[in-house]
Amino acid sequence: MSKKIHSKRRSFLFTATYTIGAVGLGATIWPLVDQMNPDSSVKSLSTTEVNVGNIEPGKTLTVLWRGKPIFIRRRTKKEIDEAAKVDLKDLIDPEKDSDRTKNPEWLVMIGVCTHLGCVPLGGKGEYKAWFCPCHGSHYDTSGRIRKGPAPKNLEIPKYEFVDNNTIKIG
């Protein structure tokens, strides 16, 4: 069997070769992995502008964003007051209503139940807000989880008012 004589000089060359080789291998593998990341056509759809000028108070508009439903609700005064009055101690996932909205009249949430991902039904449940039929989670007029297996409040996406009638989501 050939003896592996590693003198200090020799092993520097081999170490350098291995290192550069490893760098090359990594650089080769990266594109093969990155190609599975969202491509540029998908990324271009990552923001959506929605016209909300036609929504009346008490009505919810549902739009699709990144493949998920977004609930845009123009709340009535009653709903806003109800949401503000809730004691944080009573909440499974404590969060102030004012932290969940930029303008209290407009509630923008991702309509995906935080339990296992079903789409909650509007106007239903003990709080007359949202109810998830899959496993019985009840959300209040701020979209916060009040009763049932869901652990967190309905998620608020990144959004902003481009003007009074348009919301840009994402």
Binding site: P31, L32, D34, Q35, N37, D39, S40, S41, V42
Partner: peptide, 13 residues
Amino acid sequence: EHIMRNVNYGWLI
């Protein structure tokens, strides 16, 4: 064409 233009490194692959 989608691969060549949109997929990350699609043109390379």
